[in-house]
Computed example of a mutant assay.
Amino acid sequence: MRAARMHALVIDDATTVRLFHRGVLEKAGFSVTEAMNGLEALEQALAATTPLDLLLVDVNMPRMDGYAFLRAIRVEPGLRGTPAIMISTEREGHDADRAFEAGANLFLVKPVRPEVLGRLARALAGAGREAAVS
């Protein structure tokens, strides 16, 4: 019997970044939905008919940034446990702290090598551990 595919929501305001992350995650065995900002992502996550196994969240976006999105998700009973990777160009230590305070399980600094992102996404979707990687 074949296992069901994991489902990821990729949230980034840059189309090229979303397409890149989609390709990496699909190669890692995920089906992928995309959102252009935190507000659109929140609406999609709340309306999802299949469970989300992973959130890949950019920090700086219009309408609702990644921090606000994660804080909103973490109060929703059906979504609060969904593993989240926050990915950003911000690389200061306090950026990772803010990500974890908002509800991220993992903080990555762009650019992330595809094989690293795929491996971490699979591990997090199955395990859900906190770590900072740069």
Score class of each variant (00 low, 15 high):
Glu90His: 00
Pro77Thr: 07
Val109Tyr: 14
Glu101Tyr: 08
Gly81Arg: 08
Thr82Tyr: 05
Val116Cys: 04
Phe100Asp: 15
Arg80Glu: 09
Ala104Asp: 04
Thr89Tyr: 10
Val109Trp: 10
Pro77Met: 10
Val112Gly: 03
Glu115Val: 14
Ala99Met: 04
Asp97Glu: 15
Gly93Val: 15
Arg113Ala: 15
Lys110Ile: 12
Phe100Asn: 09
Ala102Asn: 03
Arg98Pro: 05
Lys110Asn: 14
His94Val: 09
Gly81Phe: 03
Val112Asp: 13
Arg80Cys: 04
Asp97Asn: 10
Thr89Asn: 14
Asp95Ala: 07
Met86Ile: 03
Arg91Asp: 13
Ser88Cys: 01
Glu92Leu: 03
Gly78Thr: 11
Glu90Ser: 02
Ser88Thr: 09
Leu106Tyr: 06
Glu92Ser: 03
Ala102Phe: 04
Ala84Tyr: 09
Asp97Cys: 12
Leu117Lys: 03
Val109Met: 12
Lys110Tyr: 02
Pro114Asn: 15
Glu115Met: 12
Thr82Pro: 07
Leu117Val: 02
Arg98Lys: 12
Leu108Met: 15
Asp97Leu: 12
Pro83Ala: 06
Pro111Thr: 15
Met86Glu: 02
Lys110Ala: 13
Asp97Met: 11
Pro77Asn: 11
Glu90Gly: 02
Ala102His: 01
Pro111Val: 14
Glu92Cys: 06
Glu101Lys: 08
Met86Gln: 01
Ser88Phe: 04
Leu79Trp: 05
Pro111Lys: 13
Ala96Arg: 11
Leu79Val: 03
Ile85Trp: 00
Pro77Val: 14
Glu90Val: 00
Phe100Lys: 10
Gly103Glu: 05
Ala96Lys: 09
